[in-house]
């Protein structure tokens, strides 16, 4: 767990009970910097919560025999940004092991969007996350975590290697830097809104094109 509160000067008073709570996901392969990114932005030291998974089933529907070896836990880290007492944003790091799809579904349900972090030394580690968000039609952007600035590829090369749509932003970042991670979240929200506007205009266009002439 990352300690040392990143923003000691920020007030940590929580939301009001009637606040709107939204979440975004910070995803990517094992050890790519998800927890580091959450710590850089969160007003609280990232918390960890666990869910129990029974290996045999697809969910946690049967934990009656918890002494059973087939029950494992999956952990996720998360942080919080209280935008104001009426609006609170949670940042959830997805579990490093992408076989826990049950947990991904719970995380993705109601999420605004996701940042997929990639490490260019292990590009393939993020494919599962990208596939998942594409399938679920959850808007996402790609953040290329430049460990110590060592970045031999440019954005276009990375985009081509990942085979993501040209509409999806691919941005270099430093998961430890608050300014850089903030920029990433701004890009994500702009992309989320662009995607929403596009989705809104599609039914209108269809209605127009199918209107009798």
């Amino acid at each position: 767990m990352v300690s040392a509160s990143s923003n000691p000067s920020r007030p940590v008073a929580g939301p009001a009970i009637d606040a709107v709570a939204v979440k975004v996901l910070i995803s990517g392969g094992f050890g790519v910097g998800k927890t580091t990114l959450v710590s850089a932005l969160s007003e609280i030291v990232p918390l960890r919560t666990e869910e129990l998974i029974t290996e045999l089933s697809d969910g946690v529907d049967d934990v009656s025999g918890i002494e059973d070896k087939s029950t494992t836990t999956v952990a996720m880290d998360f942080g919080r940004i209280t935008i104001n007492p009426e609006l609170v944003l949670y940042l959830f790091g997805t579990p490093g092991q992408d076989r826990f799809w049950f947990m991904w579904d719970e995380l993705a349900r109601g999420a605004l969007g996701a940042v997929v972090l990639v490490d260019t030394r292990r590009l393939d580690a993020c494919f599962a996350a990208i596939d998942y968000f594409e399938r679920r039609e959850l808007p996402f952007i790609v953040g290329v975590n430049c460990f110590d600035g060592a970045q031999p590829y440019d954005v276009d090369e990375i985009r081509a290697a990942l085979d993501v749509d040209s509409f999806i932003p691919v941005t270099l970042c430093d998961a430890r830097e608050r300014a850089s991670t903030k920029e990433l979240l701004v890009k994500l929200m702009e992309h989320v809104m662009n995607t929403a506007r596009l989705a809104e205009s599609v039914p209108a266009q269809q209605a127009r094109s199918s209107a009798p002439t």
Binding site: I17, D18, A19, V20, A21, V22, K23, L41, I81, I83, N84, L87, L89, G110, L112, R178, K182, L185, V186, M189, E190, V192, M193, A196, R197, A199, E200, P203
Partner: peptide, 28 residues
Amino acid sequence: IYRTGWRPVRNTPDMDTMQKVLDGIRKL
């Protein structure tokens, strides 16, 4: 007592909430 988190409604994006989140992040 509880208050359910924000849920997207298909085809009616809550642009207002999204804009508030964006503005909030910009101010960080």
